[in-house]
Amino acid sequence: MSPLLRVESLGKSYGARLGCAEVSFDLWPGEVLGIVGESGSGKSTLLGCLAGHLAADSGRILYRGRDTRAMSEPERRMLARTEWAFVHQNPRDGLRMGVSAGGNVGERLMAVGARNYGQIRAAATDWLGRVEIAATRIDDRPRQFSGGMQQRLQIARNLVTGPRLVFMDEPTGGLDVSVQARLLDLLRGLVRDMGLSVVIVTHDLAVARLLADRLMVMKDGHVIEQGLTDQVLDDPQAAYTQLLVSSVLQV
């Protein structure tokens, strides 16, 4: 077995300002990697570079052995709509608000060539069920959904093509605590059942503890500590991580 994703010395600057630097890690099939840090720590820049939304300046991103930085844009886009998925913090960024729930879920299927309406609709219905949205809502637009439902719809839309690698940017941010819990449970189940590899960016250490197998702590663009999630949270080595952990009530 080999890692699904191998990142080597990845760096990205915005002019003189550092985005992230010297980031290296391996992600194995079925593993959930949490990236934690404060705003401006470079975690979102890193996620953007990994997902191909931002162009890194240096280093390599090997997905199944191939450097995605050296891939052509069409190749990268094909990956992005087949083997990868991206869950945005704000569902509005990840959904088409003017398109029905069924159309939102079906889009990725159609993008990879599905041309049978009945089958597309059946797949959409199945996925709405898996994210606990009633099948009767299939023709409603996301606008008519609550925030938690919108987020679950975004997840369905992303997972319908059976991706291997999912990027998540604060997927539970902006949701009520009780809604968050339901979403976390759903994500855990999907990750386990589909054997997904996940890179999840969050500033919420409780979310990281419940979802991530491993943690990477970032500060000022650098990875300052990484390891097993509970080890990093319970026996943090770096001064910054100790501060971060001690600043939170009961994680």
Partner: peptide, 13 residues
Amino acid sequence: GLMHVKLYEDIAR
């Protein structure tokens, strides 16, 4: 894919 989404929406509605 998006073009077919439009046709999908037509049929759905």
